[in-house]
Computed example of a mutant assay.
Amino acid sequence: MKEQMLVAGAVVAALVSGPLVAQENAAAQANNPLANTTALNFQNLYTGELTGSDRDANQFFLRYAKPFSALGGNWLMRATLPVNTFPDAGGGDTTGIGDFNVFAAYLFDTGNPAISFGIGPQLTMPTATDDMLGTEKWSAGFANVLFNAANPKFQWGYLLTWQASFAGNDDRTDVNAGAFQPFAFYQLGQGWYLRSAGIWTYDFKTDSYSVPIGLGLGKVMQTDLATVNAFIEPQYSIATKGDGQPEWGVFAGLNFQF
């Protein structure tokens, strides 16, 4: 369970024709993980109940994204540092820094400025401050992102990641896990939108998995310094296998694009 939660925690220009359309485009692009802007995100995933127990857990994510140019193309780097709170076997909780994850996605020219597609390598480093809070493994794999904002009212896409361990503590379980995050956003107007962005996880070592579905509400606000995106999204798992999978939770965040 813990390895799956840790891995899951391990990521466009548009035509405008007036102030209202510009506001709608800004609201749509505020959720684009491949937007050509620097982003700083503060996000939190609270798990209210884990399968096989009545315990809860929490993960706070500090995320930073930055576009850059290299090897003759455009890329986007996203780095994530989690602060995890996981239940102990003795009945208490352990809180501290988890494993640091970073990926770099090469941005392909799709021929449509409203459709973004990127793929590239990812790396997870064993930076956890307690062995309960990380895998104690170095892991590598890939990240693939699609975001379609061709429709100003409805945007959709996904983030697909996979990684496997290649070094680290030999006494710890090897990592071989994937995560798929389908996301959809429906613009309500004046910066408000509906959202669904649950992260589906699968552990190839144990065949355990979770499939959470969410429905939440967000608000995009334009300030002089940044585009601010605040949201909250309750989630419920429609399918799970294995102990320690999330039964339900709440995903919330405050994102800034500069």
Rank of each mutant, 00 (worst) to 15 (best):
K2H: 11
E3F: 11
Q4I: 13
Q4N: 14
M5Q: 14
L6Q: 10
A8W: 00
A8M: 12
G9A: 14
A10I: 03
V11Q: 01
A13V: 11
A13H: 11
A14M: 06
G18D: 06
L20I: 06
L20R: 08
L20M: 05
A22D: 05
Q23A: 11
E24D: 09
E24P: 01
A28F: 06
A28K: 11
A28L: 14
N31F: 00
P33C: 12
P33T: 12
T37P: 01
T38Q: 10
A39I: 02
A39R: 06
G48V: 00
E49I: 02
G52K: 08
G52M: 09
S53K: 09
N58A: 12
R63F: 01
R63E: 13
Y64W: 12
Y64L: 15
A65C: 04
K66Q: 13
F68E: 09
A70Y: 07
L71S: 11
G73Y: 12
W75E: 10
L76Y: 03
L76K: 15
V83H: 03
V83G: 03
F86R: 04
D88N: 14
A89S: 15
G91M: 08
G96R: 07
G96I: 09
I97F: 11
D99P: 03
N101C: 08
A105I: 06
Y106D: 07
L107A: 10
D109G: 10
N112A: 14
P113A: 15
A114M: 13
F117H: 13
F117K: 14
G120A: 12
Q122W: 01
M125N: 05
P126W: 10
T127P: 11
D130H: 13
D131I: 03
L133T: 02
G134T: 09
E136A: 12
K137F: 05
W138R: 10
W138D: 11
S139Y: 00
A140S: 12
N144M: 15
F147N: 01
A150K: 10
A150T: 14
N151H: 05
Y158R: 09
L159R: 03
L159T: 10
L160E: 13
W162R: 05
W162V: 01
Q163D: 10
S165Q: 02
F166D: 12
G168I: 05
D170S: 15
D170F: 06
D174H: 04
A177S: 14
A177D: 04
G178T: 01
G178F: 00
F180W: 12
F180C: 08
F180R: 04
F180M: 07
Q181V: 05
Q181N: 14
P182F: 09
F183M: 11
A184I: 12
F185R: 11
F185C: 00
F185D: 04
Q187A: 12
G191E: 02
W192R: 07
S196W: 01
I199D: 03
W200Y: 13
T201R: 07
Y202I: 07
Y202L: 09
F204Q: 05
F204W: 09
V211P: 00
I213E: 01
I213S: 04
L215W: 03
L217K: 02
K219E: 02
V220T: 15
T223E: 01
N229L: 05
F231S: 02
I232Y: 04
E233V: 09
P234I: 11
Q235S: 01
Y236F: 14
I238Y: 07
I238S: 06
T240I: 05
T240S: 07
W248S: 07
G249C: 03
F251D: 00
A252Q: 09
A252W: 12
L254K: 07
L254M: 10
